[in-house]
Structures are given as C-alpha cells and as structure tokens.
Simulated scan of single mutants.
Amino acid sequence: MRVGIVAQKGNSRASVLAGRIRDTLPEEVEVRLDAATAERLDREGYPVEEMDACDLVVSIGGDGTFLFAARGAGPTPILGVNLGEVGFLNGVAPDDAVETVEAVVAGSRETDTIPSREVPRLRATGDGDWSVHPALNEIVVQGPQRGHGQGLDYAVRVDDRIFTAGSGDGVLVSTATGSTAYNLSEGGPLVHPDVDAFVITEMCAAESMPPLVVPGDSEVEIRAEGPAYGYVSSDSTRERFEMPESVTIRADPEPTRIAEPSSDFFQALGKLE
C-alpha cells in the first residue's frame, strides 16, 4: 500500500505530525511526503501532482491545504486532518490523526477498500480551446481586477436559457462543498454538502438577480465582454483569457473522494459565527 502525505507549507506543527504518521505506519506501507514537507524532515519528497499514484492521501492543515492536495490526488481518497479554524473538508482532529490514519490503513490492507464519499468538482472550458484544473469549491470568471470600472459585462445561460446579464466584478459558480467559502462571502446561500447542486452568484453587480441554485448536471455558460482580458479562477489557481470569451462550466466526470470520517457540517457551521 502507498500513502501520500501533504502538510501545510511553513507550518511546523503540520510537518511534525506528518513525520509522526510516517514513522508509525508499518514498514510494508510506502509513505510519500510532498516535496516541501520532505525537505523539512530531511526525507525524499514527491510532487503533489503525483499523489494520484497513492492509495490514500492524508492532508494536514486547513481547507486550503486540502484543496492543494486534491489537485494532485485525482481519484485517490483524501483524509483531512484539521489544523485550521473551521475545517469543512477536514474531519480528523490533530490528536486523533495518527490513530485514525493507522485504522484506515489497516482496514484498507484487510479489505482492499477505503470508505469514502464522492463530492463533485467543476470544470471550466473556453471557446479559445483552453481549460482549467477542476475546482472542488468554485469557478470564478472576472475582469482584470475587482473594483469600480475593472469588471466585465456578462451574460449567464443555464442549459442554453438566459438567466441574467449585466456588469460587475464577475460571476461565481460554486459547488455545494464550496458554498461555505467564497460563495458565502459574496452573499450566496449555504448548501448542504449532500445536495447535488451548484450556485450561481453575481459579484458586486450594478443590478443583479439573487443567487441561483441549479441541479448538479446543469451546464452554465458565461459570455464575458468588456476589457481586453479577464481571469478564470479554479479554487486558488487563476488563468488569463482574452475577451470576448464564452466560458462553459459543468460537473467534472471525476469527483473528489473524501475518506471517512468526514467533517461534521453543522459543527463546522457553528465556527462561522
């Protein structure tokens, strides 16, 4: 069995915990540390992009670390250890991390399975024959920068029917998982993670429709016009595109798999107050 560990960069507590997990697992289990963590522990490291070669990936940090690990994990289940304040994606407390990883690894070696739940991701493609890495939280289409006069003109269609059009900083499309993140700060609704739906939220628009919740199999098209260029963001990564451009957003065929135990959604909500 092969276990990958991705620890929050620059967090000594995360690195120490990664080392403890590595040293506790049986010798028959191959452990792959991400490059930054391996350097701190004076071990051999691996690019996060290669973590999909593992049977289990352990993310140690906050939700940002989990998103970073998910970019390279592909179909591999991810077990999140929460060192952050809220932790919607990380269900394991630091004090329980070593024991939990041991139990998951032992169960996998016995049954050849890792209990996990699938969460959808979003993929954005453009008419200019480009795409961005799938997003676990949200896709954002925006102008050169936020602020008055720096946005774009847009028209949003859902399954080829017009929903809204206007001017603003941009348009955000989030998964149910991501509804507690950027979407929430833009005035979008909370969506329970078990709901198969996406949320479309206009960002600081001159005139806007209320955020719209659409089925998870919907296709959202954003026609962007205005300045010479704009940006499309997939979680924490951003790519530039030339305008005018049509960005199509739909569910990615490959979901992210979160290894149990998953985080308690309602308990995490209480930390937002």
Rank of each mutant, 00 (worst) to 15 (best):
S116Y: 06
A228D: 13
S262I: 14
D127T: 14
D112P: 13
G10C: 10
S246Q: 09
N137L: 08
F241P: 03
R71S: 00
A70L: 03
A251Y: 02
L25F: 07
V158K: 01
V58H: 00
A155Q: 12
A14L: 09
A268D: 04
G178D: 02
E50F: 06
D196K: 04
S236W: 08
V158G: 01
S15I: 15
A197T: 07
G270H: 09
L56F: 04
E50R: 08
Q142Y: 14
P244D: 05
V247L: 07
E273Q: 11
R40N: 10
L269R: 15
M243I: 10
P47C: 02
E102V: 14
A36G: 06
G4L: 01
A176Q: 02
F265I: 09
L79A: 07
A18E: 01
V199N: 01
P227H: 08
E50Y: 09
P120L: 05
D112V: 11
L25T: 02
A224F: 11
P253T: 05
D96W: 08
E207Y: 14
P253H: 07
I114C: 10
V98K: 06
E27M: 14
P211E: 03
A124R: 09
L136F: 10
T248D: 04
R2L: 13
P211M: 04
S174A: 14
T125R: 13
R240H: 15
P210A: 15
V156N: 00
R157T: 15
D169H: 02
P189S: 01
M1E: 02
D194G: 03
S108P: 14
V132F: 06
E28H: 15
T125P: 05
L136H: 03
A206K: 08
L56K: 02
V199S: 00
L272I: 11
E49W: 14
A206D: 13
A93L: 13
Y182T: 05
G126P: 04
A224V: 11
D264I: 15
Y229F: 12
V3F: 01
M1V: 13
G151P: 06
G80K: 07
S233F: 15
A53S: 14
L212Y: 09
